[in-house]
């Protein structure tokens, strides 16, 4: 069991080791290649990084829960876009305009409700039909994205409200609202997953569904709750981002689901479910954002960035496999 603890330690520590490595690399590489004069590892830059990782990060937190459950949700990007539209568009509804700035919390509420309801729909279908979540959310991803386009065609939806922008850019000690929301969400969900009955059941359901059913855990409703949660978080992510930007394109949020899944997997959550952690996902999100930013810092273009992240993802999965083979002990067929 010692070696069990040992390899767990390596696995949980790996993502943080990787982050430190990235920091050192970009710091040194930046000295030679950087286009800007600034050092990579300064506080402002790191705070900015946290803020920039918030939209994907908030979704990735929800994705962790879904994936620990042994499910997957591909519709989060579409939910994100649709909720952004609901929020911005609702601001210009006549009765909302008459409310002045009091329309802001109401718009947020509409967006969050929309997210929760869209998640609820996913959850109900998965529960009642028993169809795999991959298929269900693949369908709803297309469907929800369709709704996005029906709203305003190819045109962007926008509504700029300076009070809202102020709230979005408000900060304590340099930590701006989006970063703060990300941190708080991660903390709360981490708490739920490690300390509450619902959280522990999530692991049980993902690890051995039959055992969970036999133990009288109501698996359907349990998964439903998690789908509502991720829908809500996708909406929250949209709220924090678009409150500041004020304009949404119908293509926004595309591939968000894949980035979120990448972060979750990098953070050590198993694709088959049953194991994983919010702390790991947090590390995964930061690691990806660091890579993007770092590669940008030394002048690489987006295509290179994606290539590198892809390679690293494969390398991480490979390493994970190697770590699971314990020395001279058993090799599975």
């Amino acid at each position: 069991m010692k070696s069990d603890n040992m390899s767990n330690l390596i696995k949980n520590g790996a993502i943080w080791g990787f982050i430190v490595l990235e920091l050192i690399f970009f710091q040194i590489a930046g000295e030679f290649w950087s286009l800007s004069e600034r050092a990579f590892m300064d506080l402002d830059n790191m705070l900015l990084l946290l803020k920039q990782s918030a939209p994907i990060g908030i979704i990735a937190v929800g994705m962790t829960v879904i994936m620990i459950n042994g499910n997957i949700d591909l519709s989060v990007g579409a939910i994100y876009a649709l909720c952004a539209i609901v929020m911005l568009d609702s601001m210009s509804w006549p009765f909302m305009e008459s409310l002045g700035d009091w329309a802001i919390p109401l718009a947020w509420l509409f967006a969050l409700l929309t997210g929760a309801v869209l998640g609820l729909i996913n959850g109900i279908i998965v529960w009642k039909t028993g169809v795999d979540a991959f298929i269900v959310t693949l369908g709803s991803m297309l469907g929800y994205r369709g709704l996005v386009f029906m709203y305003n065609g190819e045109n962007p939806t926008y509504h700029l409200n300076w009070t809202m922008v102020d709230i979005a850019e408000w900060d304590i000690f340099g930590v701006e609202t989006p970063a703060l929301v990300f941190l708080v969400v991660a903390l709360i969900v981490w708490f739920v997953m490690t300390r509450t009955v619902h959280g522990r059941n999530a692991y049980a359901v993902g690890n051995n569904r039959e055992a969970a059913v036999n133990a009288a855990i109501r698996v359907g409703p349990h998964m439903l709750i998690n789908f509502v949660l991720i829908g809500f978080l996708a909406a929250l992510s949209a709220v924090t981002f678009y409150s500041g930007s004020g304009s949404v394109n119908p293509n926004d949020g595309m591939l968000f689901e894949l980035w979120a899944i990448t972060a979750v997997v990098l953070g050590g959550t198993k694709l088959i479910g049953g194991a994983g952690s919010i702390v790991g996902t947090f590390g995964g999100v930061i690691a990806i954002q660091l890579l993007r930013k770092g590669l940008g810092h030394i002048g690489a273009d987006t295509a290179t960035v994606n290539l590198v992240i892809g390679l690293i993802l494969i390398a991480v999965l490979f390493l994970d496999r190697q770590l699971n083979v314990k020395g001279k002990e058993e090799l599975k067929v």
């Binding site: 509450t196 522990r200 692991y203 049980a204 051995n208 055992a211 036999n214 009288a216 049953g274």
Partner: peptide, 22 residues
């Protein structure tokens, strides 16, 4: 009928973990 990633205690009380508030 066990969840192998969880602890012994969580498995024994699977589906009926003792609760506190919330």
């Amino acid at each position: 009928s066990l969840a192998t990633e969880l602890s012994v205690a969580e498995n024994i009380y699977l589906g009926e973990l003792p609760r506190k508030r919330f």
